[in-house]
Design a protein around this nucleic acid. Structure first.
Length: 229
DNA sequence: TGCCAGGCCGGGT
DNA sequence: ACCCGGCATGGC
């Protein structure tokens, strides 16, 4: 009885505690070990992957990227010059291929024109300013922009995706009605500004979302975050 | 077999 | 300010 009460009190305390996110992150670090995200050998590859993976399984995306690689298309100039229809055909496996070919083109024109295809140049800019520029490109929304900033640019900005929402809503750590910006602010206010931490944490959240906190199974079985909900 | 996957845009209320 | 349909392939 006494211990039960204490446990309940602990949970309430923990939930309102600013450090609950750090506790969760530590728990997931023990659980998964290092995850080494984002898969990709260059900034450009990571940025392309961020666009191609919109609402799409990564497996399908990696095939498309492999295809691009084999055709020497992980290159800004080559992507500027390639015909959009041909590009669409090469990325067919990742779905929405006509749309994504257009979006990829939009981004690559911007990258080539504004930054001469240099990631170093682009990421030397104040990253909140750069975020605005990215968001102004048709086809780049909040998550894609933030993935580019965090994973290609090593900027301390937290990426919110469908997994983040589902996992943290299901465990009642964030509210159902919080939108992208609110959730992002919540994470960034409660966590130290550290790109490596954001990188690892987001990767862990995706793992939890895929393996334990599945959409099709409303009660997360064996969820490593059970103790936090 | 049907459902799902690391969103975003444009048009309608 | 929301809400919704469209976009599409491949894996389980």
């Amino acid at each position: 009885m006494e211990s039960l009460k204490n446990t309940a009190t602990e949970k309430v305390k923990l939930k309102s505690d600013n450090r609950i996110l750090l506790s969760i992150h530590r728990c997931l670090t023990d659980f998964f070990g290092p995850l080494y995200w984002w898969p990709g050998d260059s900034e450009l590859e990571i940025m392309i992957g961020a666009i191609l993976t919109q609402n799409t399984n990564w497996q399908n995306v990696s095939k498309a990227i492999k295809n691009l690689k084999e055709n020497n298309l992980l290159d800004t100039k080559a992507l500027v010059e390639i015909d959009e229809k041909i590009l669409a055909n090469l990325i067919k496996s990742c779905g929405y291929y006509n749309l994504k070919a257009k979006r990829l083109k939009n981004f690559i024109y911007f990258f080539y024109k504004e930054y001469d295809g240099s990631a170093e140049k682009m990421f030397s800019k104040d990253f909140w300013m750069l975020r605005k520029e990215l968001l102004s490109i048709n086809g780049i929304g909040t998550e894609t922009a933030d993935s580019i900033l965090l994973y290609a640019g090593n900027k301390p900005i937290f990426v919110v995706d469908a997994y983040t929402k589902r996992v943290f809503r299901r465990h009642k750590i964030i509210s159902e009605k919080d939108d992208y910006e609110q959730i992002q602010r919540y994470f960034m206010e409660k966590l130290p500004s550290d790109y490596q931490l954001y990188n690892e944490f987001h990767a862990q959240i995706v793992m939890v979302g895929k393996q334990y906190c599945k959409k099709s199974v409303p009660n997360c079985q064996d969820c490593p975050l059970a103790e936090f909900s």
